[in-house]
Amino acid sequence: MDLGEYRRDYVKDGLSRKDLVADPMQQFSHWFAQALELSRNDAVSMPDPTAVVVATVGENGMPSQRTVLLKFYDTRGFVFYTNYGSRKAREIAGNPQTSLIFVWLEMERQVRVCGRATKVGVAESTKYILSRPKESQMSAWVSSQSKPLTSRQALLQKLDEMKRKIGEGKVPIPSFWGGFRVEPQEIEFWQGGSSRLHDRFQYVKKEGLWQPPVRLAP
């Protein structure tokens, strides 16, 4: 299928240096707040601004990506949760250098993050796990993430068995499930531009300090 003629122009907004603040995490907060606000607008189709693609690299050098949900962020970095036996977790254990990308097409924006991923503390993971709906907590137990599965029915049967076993009781905290925090060393803000002349600004951290943003060619 030739898609060479399938295109659209990006004309919603522009991005200049005067629009940016010195701290890229504050800049992210500004854009993220706008994305959240837009997602609550019933007239706009923007289902989940917390969705973020996580890219890791396997021991054979092959990169892999998957979409997860951002669950927390602050000046230390961006946090998502997973099974520590999953492919992404195994690859992070072998190579903690990780990349994230937020794509907000409705705003014609992207944010790209490069940094080092580390496990969050047990207390932080436990707090989040306990905030999840009970069935979601049980799902963490019944799914051996990234491993082969005979059928969906087998998975649902395991969930039903656990529901009967737990009853009205509390779901145990799994030691094999928790968070990763990606501590950014590089953050790029991308705003779509007319005639493919997009606006790109890159922040880089050196010796623990964020350097002034640099405009990149589109």
Rank of each mutant, 00 (worst) to 15 (best):
K158W: 13
E161H: 09
E168F: 03
E168S: 12
I173F: 03
T126S: 11
Y128V: 15
E161Q: 11
A123F: 02
Y128E: 07
Y128D: 03
E168C: 01
S144A: 15
R152D: 09
Q137E: 06
T118M: 06
C114S: 13
L149P: 03
I166C: 04
K147Y: 15
R164A: 14
Q157M: 06
P133L: 06
Y128P: 13
E188M: 07
G169W: 11
K163C: 02
Q137W: 00
V113D: 02
M162S: 04
E186T: 07
C114Y: 02
I166D: 14
Q145W: 14
M138K: 04
K119C: 05
E186N: 06
K170T: 13
E135Q: 13
G121Q: 10
I166V: 10
A117T: 05
L159S: 08
P133I: 00
P184T: 07
P184D: 09
S144Y: 15
C114V: 15
G178I: 08
K163T: 09
E188Y: 01
C114A: 12
A117Y: 01
T118Q: 08
R181E: 02
S139P: 00
Q145K: 04
W141M: 13
E124M: 10
E168D: 15
M138T: 00
S136H: 11
G179L: 06
I129Q: 05
Q185H: 06
I166H: 04
T126L: 01
W141Q: 13
L156W: 06
E183R: 01
E188P: 03
V171G: 08
F180K: 10
G178N: 05
K127Q: 11
S146D: 12
M162C: 02
R116H: 13
D160F: 04
P172I: 08
S151D: 08
Q185T: 05
F189E: 08
A123P: 01
S125E: 01
S151K: 07
G169L: 09
L159P: 04
S131M: 09
A140S: 14
I166S: 07
T150H: 08
E124K: 05
